[in-house]
Design a protein around this nucleic acid. Structure first.
Lengths: 209, 209
DNA sequence: TGTACATCAGTGAACGCGCGTTCACTGATGTAC
DNA sequence: TGTACATCAGTGAACGCGCGTTCACTGATGTAC
């Protein structure tokens, strides 16, 4: 039960921000009354720490799963396909913690910032294992550049108020990260485009909320 | 006086988030009592809209000033020197609204999202005028890629808990955006490095809060 | 197999505090005549 | 030049509500003997 509350809170903070956590509301959504909250957690801050940790864990795990599923040399492609997709843009609650929470992290407790940094370093590590750079350091730097591009693009794509603008930002970032890829001529799987991928590629005629 | 309150609020939301605005506290910091607030603004939300608008205006203006000060062909360099610097990383309150507020914008009112999008488009426009791309569209796409990289890098550099890690992220992003620039061999002005630039370039021996 | 007691996982009322908003009031400055 | 009145730019007390936290109490399940 305690794990269920943490899971629910970890989705909530990504979707609505760390300060959006309300004890009573959270307990109600778990089918409980608020009084019992303090049986599971020391305080609201204690829960927030755990929820944040879970959100970072989930993001790193997802990242590692994608890397492992793809063979070496295809990790970047696999991660980018997930990361810079309309699906991920829309599902903030279950998506990567980096674009959703970084700004708040920079004003949070040292325990949260420490956890954030550790998770970020793991992601860089996973990505850099796929880079053919002259040295390990060079590979890491390449990974940092790619990660920054992806985080920035997803962040902006989510904030913007028009779906075609969002799609264009994601499309540009995919191109920038994977190398020059003329739009509408290839896709990641070598298969036909799905409707979602079509929209994601920035077709101006298709505009939605 | 009303303008002073908006300025102060626009710095505050960048530094501590939109929801950090407290009517009484804000008025006190302007040397007034909270009762008079409603003489200047319809409501707290009204002030927030105006403070956000000011923050976006300020960011776009700064961007344009840097572009105009530099000659054509040197705009990118000029903007990057400002954007990806330790100074900008630290001074969130007077810095670009994009990394500070994008995550919150994505859950804000349509009026705020509209203003955000308009400002973002202006920035892309200014940057794209300096790109030598085959077409206007290509130049814009290049500008979007560069902006995403810069926003993502600054965001991560601020969230991380070690100064040397921050510096490395900024250094990597500068390199990625300006083309391959071996560290410690050149700087933007062709002059000797300042202490700030030295730190910014990621020297592991210099670590600070 | 039954009895007594402890622990677990809650319930729901109450408390206190922060904060947005309202409101009656005030002193200074402008305007009409 | 003086008088009356309106408007501006506030003050500070009070109200109401949301929300984190506390607390006395409860029923179910486990354990000792």
């Amino acid at each position: 039960m305690s794990a269920r509350i943490v899971d629910s809170a970890s989705a909530r903070i990504r979707e609505r921000g760390i300060e959006s956590i309300k004890v009573a509301e959270l307990m109600k959504s778990a089918g409980l009354t608020h009084g019992g909250f303090y049986f599971h957690f020391k305080s609201r801050t204690d829960l927030i720490d755990k929820a944040f940790a879970r959100a970072m864990e989930g993001s790193v795990d997802q990242w590692q799963r994608l890397a492992e599923m793809a063979g070496p040399g295809e990790r970047l492609q696999s991660i980018v396909d997930y990361y810079l997709a309309e699906q991920h843009r829309k599902d903030v609650a279950h998506g990567c913690a980096l674009p959703a929470l970084s700004a708040e992290v920079s004003r949070s407790s040292t325990s949260i910032r420490r956890r954030f940094s550790a998770g970020l370093e793991e992601m860089i590590q996973v990505l850099s294992e796929d880079m053919r750079g002259s040295s390990k350091k060079a590979a890491q730097r390449q990974a940092i550049a790619i990660l920054s591009e992806m985080v920035g693009a997803l962040l902006l794509a989510r904030a913007v108020d028009r779906a075609d603008f969002s799609a264009e930002i994601l499309s540009v970032a995919r191109e920038a990260v994977l190398g020059t890829t003329p739009r509408g001529q290839r896709n990641s799987q070598g298969t036909t485009k799905s409707a979602a991928e079509h929209r994601a590629s920035g077709c101006e005629r298709c505009s939605e909320t």
